[in-house]
């Protein structure tokens, strides 16, 4: 009984707040156009309902424009984002890690991305496996979250709202892929970053809350690829929209279904039933021979 009352109330609240937000957003938008009418250049951005829209460049190039926490819960309409990792191309260049750290203002000790040295058995050859959040369709972390601080959006992205997270770390225990990191201490204040927090940017970090790879929805909204994709020198990482059946690594664009079919795409630990949205292509016909990493490689790649 109480539950239904709560539901109705929260629905009304939600309706009111989102309505108010839209109104506020609209007025802000028009004010923006007035003040920056001098600029004529247009860029393409992806709106919340998934349409590509041309807007004033000056508007987009602002230093920060994080979407509200309410909008960040809804996802980009009509899209379902996926990533493909071609293991045959990875040589542990670690550029994805450094660009991700830069974009999200995260220190080295809690990266959103890891490049793991994998070896399936003694006889098989080792390979490098870039791993980030799999944005599962049956996400264990979202299931166990007591407060809905981590949530799944309609576009398949799983985000964390660090202003709601209570720091119970149940999601970290639940994630079979160890994708989540925790702010055990007070995180360093990012330099030259004065933007408001949004779950879509995952920055600035907050003490006592969980974080993870967010698929860079702030970039996606501008119809740009996530930082890790564009920074990879070897085209290992592909990103795209499953519903459009296309993924791109920035250089080439291919049909997702064809790529998975022709190269034997698989999902890691399929048997767990988590339905990941990150696919892997097996490390066959490799671009680079496997080379062990030493300390110097890491420090070099971080320069």
């Amino acid at each position: 009984m109480k539950k239904t009352v709560n539901n109705r109330r929260s629905f009304i609240q939600f309706g009111l707040t989102s309505g108010a937000l839209m109104l506020a957003g609209a007025t802000a938008f028009f004010q923006k156009i007035k003040t920056t009418s001098a600029s004529t250049e247009k860029v393409k951005v992806l709106t919340t309902d998934g349409k590509v829209m041309e807007v004033d460049k000056a508007h987009v190039n602002e230093p920060c424009h994080p979407v509200s926490r309410t909008l960040a819960r809804q996802g980009i309409k009509g899209k379902k984002f996926v990533m493909v990792v071609d293991l045959s191309r990875c040589r542990n260049a670690r550029k994805c890690i450094s660009s991700c750290e830069k974009a999200h203002n995260i220190p080295h000790d809690r990266p959103f991305i890891k490049v793991l040295r994998m070896q399936d058995n003694e006889e098989s050859s080792p390979y490098w496996m870039p791993k980030k959040c799999f944005h599962c369709d049956n996400p264990p972390c979202v299931k166990v979250c007591p407060v809905g601080a981590t949530y799944k959006r309609s576009d398949g992205i799983v985000l964390v709202d660090n202003e709601r997270c209570i720091g119970c770390r149940f999601c970290m225990s639940a994630c079979p892929y160890s994708a989540r990191v925790f702010n055990w201490g007070e995180p360093e204040k990012p330099e030259n970053y004065n933007c408001a927090y949004s779950p879509e940017t995952s920055t600035p970090s907050k003490i006592g809350t969980v974080e993870k790879c967010d698929f860079c929805p702030d970039m996606i909204r501008e119809n740009k690829l996530p930082h890790c994709i564009t920074s990879c020198p070897n085209g290992v990482l592909y990103f795209g929209d499953k519903l459009s059946d296309s993924v791109t690594n920035g250089d080439e664009t291919v049909r997702l279904s064809e790529m998975l079919r022709d190269k034997g795409g698989y999902r890691y630990l399929e048997e767990l039933g988590t339905e990941p949205n990150v696919y892997y292509l097996p490390p066959v016909n490799r671009l680079f021979p496997f080379k062990e990493m030493d300390e110097n490689d890491v420090s070099q790649s971080e320069i």
């Binding site: 992806l46 590509v52 899209k79 996606i220 690829l225 990103f239 795209g240 459009s244 791109t248 920035g250």
Partner: peptide, 9 residues
């Protein structure tokens, strides 16, 4: 063809 982020040949 136009796809999100890029054009698919």
């Amino acid at each position: 063809v136009e796809r999100p982020f890029s054009r698919l040949p």
